[in-house]
Amino acid sequence: MPVKLEDAVKEAAKEIVKMASVSPALDVKNAIKGSLNIETHEPSRVQLNAILENINLAENYKAAVCQDTGVPTFFIRLGDGFPIRSRLLQILTEAVREVTKELPLRSNTVDPVSEKNSGDNTGLGVPVFDIELFDGDYLEMVYTPKGGGTELPSKAFVIPPGNAWEKLPKLVLDAVVDAGPMPCPPVIVGVGIGPSVDVAAKLAKKAAVLRPIGSRNSNPDVAKLEDALLRAVNKLGIGAHGTGGVVTALDVHIEYAYRHPATFAVGIVFSCWATRRARAIVHPDGSFEVRPQ
């Protein structure tokens, strides 16, 4: 395998780490712009305009859009025919280390035992990798850093399945009220459903950070619930940065896996107004394309 391909993977990874640190995802930016058409509550409009001004300034200066450049996280789809396998994680870790110095990014990796920050955004378990395999010859990776404020109000439960769907709306709405201004609204609310908290939480995270705003679950029953939950969340009056109004969430996304007969696990994950993601595709010949999402 040519060393050139490893270089291409690192280059592509560095590009998306930079891209997703400087700008929020395009659909998120557009949704914030669009929310000014429906928000009439003045303090909330002040916050939305400040958010947009900050996004534009960060893009002009090529500076991080939020000073919390998040926990480095890669969602990877690895084709059967792509020649780099176990080395991949080392290459991506090195890419994060280099961009942390070059852009710069704030280092958000603290050893919970010694309380020491590694200083380079890497450490035990970080970057976070999620890997799917597929029948193809290329590598696809999405970088989605996520800040601490939006992680704090995350929740996970396992409830009895009997009337779980009837209980779900209140679980989600209570979580939004508990979160209040903490996750930097307007947020994307991700809801995951599955057999266990680990599965539900991971699906909730993917629902919050990976799915574009306006996308709907392919199951029409779930899509209908997404619409209804979005309307309900935006009736709570929390608003941009908790200053009131009708734009608390930009969207609600639900992802599910099959559950155990005895369990119905629910994960709830928020993603802030600065939801960031960028995607790269690397081909086996070393050519690659990157784009903001």
Partner: peptide
């Protein structure tokens, strides 16, 4: 507002 908002969603759950 939570309880009323949650009730309104009930018609849309699977």
């Amino acid at each position: 507002r939570v309880d009323e908002a949650a009730r309104e969603v009930l018609g849309s759950v699977p």
